[in-house]
Design a binder for these strands. Structure first.
Lengths: 341, 341
DNA sequence: TATTTTACCGCAATCGTTTGCATAGTTTTT
DNA sequence: AAAAACTATGCAAACGATTGCGGTAAAATA
């Protein structure tokens, strides 16, 4: 039993006033007499009037919706970010539209089109691993839609972004590993076309040189999934000697490495220390529990959304892009605590 | 540098034809000559025309958007479901709008209003733990918007739903525990106002009576979070003897229980076996790895969305609601394998 | 040749809301 | 008392796409 939705006209008809007056009254325009405003409010409540967001969006050429493009929702970190985004958006009366790129560049481009077609007020994006060209993101700019990057930014695009202090955090992790007495430290890196991957590697290299450890090319390979890490450890075991520490680009990678190490009968952290990155929910309960860095995903979502909302609400164009960095916290757990072994 | 978006009128002007013709040509209406259609297609491509979804939505009184109301995105299970939803929606040209209820009833009601105001074509919802009344969901019906429940349905509402075979799965888990030699099996239940919580408890009870084990009231308490489970184990330890098995309503609860057991120096599964529910990503890598049931979240999302889409595209009202159940798979891991101890 | 059919296309209204401008009535100012 | 200013409201045109209803010209038929 479908009921025709209540519109502004219905209210107008009831009160024998014009739709314009109702519209104005609804948003408490002082041009409208207090009396009329109250009447309108009453009738609106009685009829259970709900403004048609779509119609408003059409008229204003913008809807109270913000679009989010995210590689994969199933990552704990990303779901945390979304949660933060959702919270701020909700409180500000915005709704969020979420698209997954599934780490594919073309799908990401498609997501952009979709979001633009929906007249979103702004877009939050964390670029996919695959993405190399950024023309689809510049498209957003051309349409005058604010965009802010979170976590993974497109290198070279001067836009707002809130990112982690990947370099520093990676450096802290590596330093910690060195302090534990490790000297042959391998890095399973993320894709180097992503700032996130590049920066973490840089931090790793920095900590190495800081400690006077000569870096060796074969210490660093791109391996950013559970399986790749597993295989890489197996390969290392055959090709060269195992290192005494592995610093992984993310937690899942670390777990993959740990699985391989366990199978090889290697003690963690006794023979090989391991560290991850991201503080996935499983890092705390893995065995042994994983040293990692907490990226504060929720906060990141909150900050990014605030930034975007500020951009949306500011008239002036051309304000310089701002970069916010949220500091990661090194969380030392059992995979790197030599003391206890 | 904001560029005015290109509209159907722009194309019309270029070709000196009317907007109506362009509109029709764009959707390959045979009423329009092939030649014109090709011209339109060309110009549209050249101008990079993107149809304004909002305008279309207004005219059609429906947008190609489906709304999702979910308790919390950060649960691995739910993020899997969303992933499934997103996939199907994407392939069918729909976009998804996600709202979190954060397990709050009023927020859920608010989400419904938001989604309806956005003229969504349909709604997928998994009701919050807190939700007792369902008037806000009936509101959806009144607006003629299709609704399908996934995972958690509102008891008593005759709507499409895709749910787990909670009862059977819970029964299987309990049976398995019994087979392992356990006889004093405690159940940490979920909220009993949710079908999901009720059914799992029923399955547990069924398996018990099936095996001729007399149920005792104090064996079952509502504890559905990590912390509550932790505390409950501690309480049980003081008040009565620890059981020889704990079947938890979900994985996180199981982990909370395990944490407490570890602290009490109780061997798992030697002295107390543990089982969870949901196959969270951490169940596989916890120590010991957790026996649980895989709920196939992704599939669930896929099925629910297909069901919704079918409903959206079917003219006829009044087709009876269908219930799909996706069968959970018992995954036996170390927390319940007495054989190996 | 007159008439009907067919193929293509345009007019104009519509979806629900917003907003610049006009207008009627009332109050204040000169 | 006339002019000016203000108050409260209405008119009508947008926003961009869709669609029922017609209309024109060419082709087919009588």
């Amino acid at each position: 039993m479908k009921t025709a939705p209540v519109t502004i006209k219905d209210i107008a008809r009831q009160l024998k006033i014009s739709p314009s007056t109702v519209s104005r009254a609804l948003k408490n325009n002082p041009e409208i007499s207090l009396e009329t405003r109250q009447h309108v409010a009453e009738v609106a409540a009685r009829l259970d009037y709900r403004p048609n967001i779509v119609a408003r969006g059409l008229k204003q050429r913008q809807s109270a919706t913000i679009g989010v493009i995210i590689p994969e929702i199933v990552h704990y970190f990303f779901s945390q970010v979304i949660s933060g985004i959702e919270e701020v958006a909700y409180n500000e009366g915005y709704t969020v539209m979420i698209c997954q790129s599934n780490e594919k560049s073309d799908r990401e481009a498609n997501n952009v089109r979709t979001l633009l077609a929906h007249q979103v007020a702004g877009i939050l994006v964390s670029v996919s691993k695959e993405t190399a060209g950024f023309s689809h993101l510049e498209e957003v700019d051309k349409n005058g839609v604010p965009l802010v990057f979170f976590d993974r930014a497109a290198p070279g695009m001067a836009k707002d972004q809130v990112i982690n202090d990947n370099r520093e955090s990676a450096c802290r992790v590596t330093r910690h590993l060195i302090q534990q007495g490790c000297s042959r430290i391998v890095h399973f890196a993320g894709p180097q076309n992503l700032s996130i991957g590049k920066e973490r590697k840089e931090g790793y290299l920095h900590a190495l040189s800081e400690a006077g450890i000569a870096f060796r090319e074969e210490w660093c390979t791109v391996a950013d999934t559970f399986d790749k890490a597993y295989q890489e450890v197996m390969r290392l075991h055959q090709v060269l000697n195992l290192p005494d520490a592995i610093f992984c680009n993310n937690d899942l990678t670390a777990l993959g490495a740990m699985k391989a190490l366990r199978q090889l009968g290697v003690a963690i952290p006794g023979e090989v220390a391991v560290a991850g990155f991201s503080n996935g929910i499983f890092s705390e309960i893995s065995d042994p529990s994983l040293t990692t860095v907490d990226q504060h995903g929720y906060d990141m979502g909150v900050q990014a959304t605030r930034l975007l909302l500020k951009r949306i609400n500011s008239q002036k164009e051309g304000e310089p892009p701002v970069t916010m960095v949220v500091r990661g916290d090194l969380i030392i757990r059992d995979t790197s605590s030599r003391g206890s072994v």
